[in-house]
Write a protein that binds this DNA or RNA. Structure first.
Lengths: 193, 193
DNA sequence: GTTCTTTATTGACAAATGTCATCGTTTTCT
DNA sequence: AGAAAACGATGACATTTGTCAATAAAGAAC
């Protein structure tokens, strides 16, 4: 179970993990399971955990004043999931995170994170993960303000083809910031070509 | 000149700076000046520097196939500016960065960054800066997919009132992902209230 | 296996936003 | 000071996208 995480770490850091490191990681990251639709974080609560997804699919979303969900993040195997602002500042979150499929995770409490960051490989892994997250977020933002619906969808197909396999269209539409009807029409136009 | 940076660092880290740290910082971060409209980074080039803005205003933008600019970041005094992907991976950038006002910076080359990160206060400062950048980017993304034009503008007024003072409306409109005409109309509606 | 829920498509129409053109004002440049 | 450029507002109209409703198919639950 932890092998998956260790292999992830070695992919995102140059420093090796010692035996003691691995022990500390096993103590800090605890296995957890979520059934489909079960909440990992509900808005108004403080985000207690960072999750590493071993198996399954999750989504992070906000709910607007009209009650509509807006997907701000989708995550599959080997992704980290957390509301960082709430987790780090211990403030109530404006986001929800739930499982879209039955999901297995390793979860890490904020206090344990501090201890883990003493491990160079972990620090490096999170450092790189943070950089990549920011870069990805900025790209998505650029697409969002610069591209019309169809091109946003085409970009998504290129960047995250798995999403389209694992999540239904109305989730993808919300992730792109368009209505499900518009996405349906965009797709039919695309496939006409 | 460096006092401004030192004070920034102390605000974003708990560790103090030693004399040697300060010396190393002074060696690594070099003063630079940009006149209005001058490029800090031009698309197609590798981003060579991370800049710390001492005085002035800058913008980071992409140009789409129709030749329209899309502002993905605005930055004022005490902001860092860089295209991280290009800077870290040494790949050609898809973004442009230029000065909107005459600007004074301290600039840092990627190789020197590695050396600076040995300083705990610097590491901590960049760590926190990265977290904050990601959180801000995610918020902006959420606004972008969840809110109509007027509410996006109201959010901007709350979050970054300085932007509206320092940049003309067509820049603000582009930052919000709307046309300058729409922003003009949004504003006239807002002020009618 | 049947029922209920979720998902996806499509049409008709509404609303939001974009485009183009014009005009007056302000700012910048020399 | 005078000319040129940038800025901002507005009208007319086009385009994109959203909303609502109906329908059908696929999948989940019991």
């Amino acid at each position: 179970m932890y092998e998956q995480l260790f292999s992830y770490i070695s992919r995102y850091s140059e420093s090796p993990l010692t035996e003691e490191d691995e022990t500390l990681i096993k103590i800090s990251l605890k296995p957890a399971k979520l059934k489909k639709k079960e909440f990992f974080l509900e808005q108004g609560n403080v985000c207690q955990f960072t999750g590493f997804i071993l198996k399954g699919a999750m989504r992070q979303f906000s709910i607007d004043s009209a009650g509509n969900e807006h997907i701000i993040q989708l995550a599959l195997e080997n992704w980290w999931i957390v509301d960082r602002e709430s987790y780090l500042m211990k403030t109530p979150s404006v986001y929800n995170i739930d499982a879209w499929e039955d999901t297995e995770l390793l979860v890490l409490e904020a206090d344990d994170l501090q201890r883990l960051l003493e491990i160079p490989a972990i620090k490096e892994m999170f450092w790189n993960m943070n950089q990549n997250s920011f870069i990805a977020s900025q790209k998505r933002l650029n697409n969002s303000i610069a591209l019309p619906a169809m091109e946003r969808y085409e970009q998504l197909l290129k960047s995250y083809p798995d999403f389209v396999q694992r999540f239904p269209q109305h989730i993808i539409a919300s992730y792109l910031g368009i209505s499900k009807e518009t996405l349906s029409r965009v797709r039919s136009k695309l496939f006409q070509k």
